[in-house]
Write a protein that binds this DNA or RNA. Structure first.
Lengths: 215, 215
DNA sequence: CCAGAGTAGAGAGTTAGACTATCCAGCACA
DNA sequence: TGTGCTGGATAGTCTAACTCTCTACTCTGG
């Protein structure tokens, strides 16, 4: 398969494919001549993966590169995988080493988190800081509610990590971390609508635009 | 208070403040002379809100503008607020009107969601598409697990929406939608670590880097 | 065997977003 | 009175993610 065919197959322009090649996201084709290479189904699925990471996954080209790099050379023990996944995906501008609120919460909840993982803790700290800066104070107990909801989700997810091979486990964890995030957020927004419809709009027709609501 | 003081107070450069003024994110100061204006505490807190939306909230300047615009003129019934919030924040490139998977799931679960809200449904569809493109298939029952977790969270959040004034409700909903998202994601990643530590690393010291682990 | 299309590789150009810098008068306080 | 800040506007910078162009080929149909 040549580039132009690959481009048609994946609906990605030749120029962009070349760009991904240079960026190291996509491995080169098999050389058939000094100025000729051959691409296969592996390149097609790789390109689909790349687009999933860049689009729905919300990663930058650089971040996607790190994720793919990890996927390409599976090493490390099963336990460290999560750390790699979280670290590789979407690096914070500057993971500050100071995150008092986050530390306090983790200790309060008794969560076992690498004390040196400033990236993960910074993320939480920044989220909390954002809420505070916006003058938005979550109601009593909400932080705990969020935490326990995510803990339950995470526990189920970790249980399910395939134990068979490190490579498979790594793939599962990286993609599960990055690609499930937009899924969760989309579900939350839809659930808001659902909950709102149930609570507020008892008497009125919930969706004036549509003649009949799905029931 | 003059611009330079406002800049020092908020730690945002004068040039950037001017930029936000031009972009309509920040309202002008009270004119004291043709070439003089006066800023107050309102501008300070507004700037903090802007930065929270742009930074932790992950919004673009344009998206933040829409959110702030909504916050500035509270109208609408309580029930529509969620829709506005979801719609204003981070517009999809092109909310497709076709989202079969999303529709099917919502119907299967009996969720009451505006059939015309292509934005919200598209978001879910894209997330599902991303998983598929990446060749990542969530284990049996996981979609339901995610959905019920988010539904529980959303139900609690909607319950708590202040009924007092539309303005307050709107503020709560918009900020809760946008700013809680990074919080949830950060918690999920930390919870992954915690769950992983509990399951995998029974015997070994969980965090080789640190001499003593918390707990 | 040769013209025209396709290709790899690399550098330059483009576009969009978010700033950042410069300029220009006009107040304004020391 | 003049140094310095101000509002307003325009232009410039910087980065990310492409997209275009060019060169020196190779490959294919007639």
């Amino acid at each position: 398969m040549r580039v132009s065919e690959l481009a048609v197959e994946t609906d990605i322009s030749v120029a962009t494919i070349k760009y991904y090649l240079r960026a190291g996201l996509l491995h080169e084709g098999r050389r058939t001549a000094p100025r000729q290479a051959d691409y296969d189904a592996g390149h097609v699925s790789r390109l689909r993966l790349i687009r999933a990471l860049l689009g729905p996954g919300g990663l930058s080209v650089a971040a996607a590169g790190k994720v793919l790099e990890q996927l390409d050379e599976p090493t490390e023990s099963a336990h460290d995988l999560l750390g790699i996944a979280a670290h590789a995906a979407a690096a914070l501008p500057k993971p500050s080493t100071s995150h008092p609120r986050a530390d306090a919460l983790l200790e309060k909840w008794g969560w076992s988190v690498d004390p040196e993982d400033h990236d993960a803790r910074s993320r939480l700290e920044q989220a909390l800081q954002g809420l505070e800066d916006a003058g938005f104070e979550p109601p009593e107990g909400f932080l705990e509610m969020y935490a326990s909801a995510m803990r339950e989700v995470a526990a189920r997810e970790v249980e399910e990590v395939p134990q068979s091979s490190p490579a498979e486990a790594l793939r599962y964890v990286m993609l599960g971390t990055v690609l499930v995030e937009p899924l969760l957020l989309a579900l939350r927004r839809l659930a808001h609508q659902d909950a709102s419809a149930r609570i507020f709009a008892r008497q009125a027709s919930p969706w004036p635009n549509a003649e009949r609501t799905p029931e």
